[in-house]
């Protein structure tokens, strides 16, 4: 089975819309990385039990380096630190819950907004300079912050939870098959993609399975 459950990640600032913690972890695990992942964490997304799914081993954490921020100023400093931490080996940068700490910060809003804008700009610039994907999310962020990120982003991945697992959607990618331990759950669009529709237009691009075939692997 060559079908991937997560979209390929292109260089640039990538806004992952409304993932929960596990969806962000899934995207990072699914990314094909030749090199290092740098992760600036907020709100405990880098929880290692989630990064290691049940079948995986500690080795799967190899190549991921994490620094956690617990408040806005630390977060902004860590985003700056990224510039010196990053190297030619860096293949992916992740900054989940980008707005969260700025939204709960003490002090005048004008000051924390500057910090947030600064962090967002730095991440976008870093993506261009390193030519790597920089994944950011703001699942509980204000509309204004999410709009600001969306405006900066080169790409947006929409993320949904379905009864069969996570579905990711970009301009060029739809999740059409869901990996379960030991077997794949496919969807009609998956088979349509493989063999074409019988009658012109495919059925509605439903990613939630309707009547589904199960394909056992191995």
């Amino acid at each position: 089975m060559t079908q991937s459950t997560t979209p390929p990640l292109d260089a640039g600032l990538v806004f992952v819309e409304q993932p929960d913690r596990a969806a962000m972890q899934r995207l990072v695990r699914g990314a094909e990385r030749e090199g290092e992942t740098l992760w600036v964490d907020a709100g405990g997304v880098a929880e290692t039990y989630g990064l290691l799914d049940e079948a995986a081993s500690r080795r799967d954490l190899r190549g991921i380096r994490v620094a956690r921020a617990f408040q806005a100023h630390q977060h902004h400093q860590l985003v700056r630190d990224l510039v010196s931490e990053a190297s030619a080996r860096t293949a992916l940068v992740v900054a989940p819950n980008l707005a969260a700490l700025y939204e709960t910060a003490d002090g005048p809003a004008a000051a924390t907004e500057r910090l947030f804008d600064g962090s967002l700009t730095l991440l976008a610039d870093l993506a261009d300079a390193l030519e790597v994907p920089v994944l950011v999310s703001a699942p509980h962020g204000t509309d204004a912050h999410r709009a600001a990120i969306r405006e900066r982003a080169a790409d947006v991945i929409e993320c949904r939870r379905t009864s069969q697992g996570y579905a990711f959607e970009t301009d060029e990618f739809d999740t059409t098959a869901y990996w379960h331990r030991g077997w794949w759950q496919t969807t009609i669009p998956y088979w349509v993609g493989l063999y074409g529709a019988v009658d012109g237009e495919p059925a509605a691009a439903e990613t939630v399975p309707a009547t589904l075939g199960e394909v056992a692997v191995e």
Binding site: L61, R65, V66, A67, Q77, L78
Partner: peptide
């Protein structure tokens, strides 16, 4: 303000 965050460390 507490600016000093933690240093990057391997996820392991």
């Amino acid at each position: 303000r507490a600016w000093e965050g933690e240093a990057f460390k391997p996820a392991r």
